[in-house]
Design a binder for these strands. Structure first.
Lengths: 144, 144
DNA sequence: TTGACAGTTGACGTTAACGTCAACTATCTC
DNA sequence: GAGATAGTTGACGTTAACGTCAACTGTCAA
């Protein structure tokens, strides 16, 4: 599966066991196993907005949690644009009713899509497992 | 979530209820809700290899099943390159032992990644659901 | 004060996965 | 035989999500 496989070897996302109050960009990057470039890119797209000390970015624990959220959403297949929209949704507490109906429908659609996706994942896992079993058997039979 | 959402509104993949023995490219495309262009693209990348009648492609039921497989893998987050490699893996019955060990490891890694992804999906679904609940409550309270 | 670092902002390059023509071909219908 | 219709092969365009590089800035230790 070559090195492309790493495109799929996403961050193992247990929030980094760093209980500091604030973080630098490289701390976050290392903790989540992404590049600083990527984090800045998310900021350019309005996904995070850390404080600044002078020109440097300073990330709070909330920012870190938000980044975790973003990466998980990414891992689940959402595009950055979609993630941004979801974030915006969460920020609407004051939308009018029609807006809320739309919000609700979008949410439900996403839930449906995710549920479908879960089914696909289960099926794929099952297939890979049975394939693994076959290969294991071949191994036990020894080289021919 | 704009129209970008449709980038995620993947094919609802119940294999099309068409029990013919062979299919044209547009039949498959419509059945799976993808474009003929995409299917040809997959062929260019060695993911499918339908028969030909003259210059036209003719897809068997096996081809259709394979396309379903491909789309499911896509939906789960695999790149076309990765899918191609998985297909190649399935075609190795004669690899040497070392190759098989590698194959096995790759498979297991994928299973791990998929399992993680499942966890993320569950978490995301849970969050969306609780968010839905909140919005519903707001709706019931009526417009302010 | 002079590196050595960590961080910053553009600007441009890159890859994946198609979309979008354009120019043909083959088949059937009128 | 002239469209209409479904298919074909290039070739080029496009979008997302960063990577890469260049040119600075700010901070601290020797």
């Amino acid at each position: 599966m070559s090195d492309h496989a790493h495109a799929f070897a996403h961050a193992p996302l247990p929030p980094p066991a760093n209980d500091a109050a604030s973080f630098t960009i490289t701390e976050l990057a290392q903790g989540f196993n992404v590049t600083p470039r990527a984090i800045r890119f998310y900021e350019d797209n309005g996904l995070i907005a850390p404080e600044r000390q002078g020109q440097n970015r300073v990330y709070s624990r909330r920012d870190r949690a938000r980044l975790a959220w973003i990466l998980r959403a990414k891992n689940v297949g959402f595009s950055l644009a979609e993630i941004r929209e979801m974030i915006d949704l969460y920020d609407i507490g004051d939308g009018r009713v029609k807006q809320r109906r739309v919000t609700l429908e979008k949410c439900r659609n996403r839930i449906l899509a995710l549920t479908e996706q879960r089914t696909d994942i289960d099926a794929t896992i099952a297939e890979l497992q049975s394939f693994c079993a076959v290969v294991e058997t071949q191994l036990l039979e020894g080289p021919h």
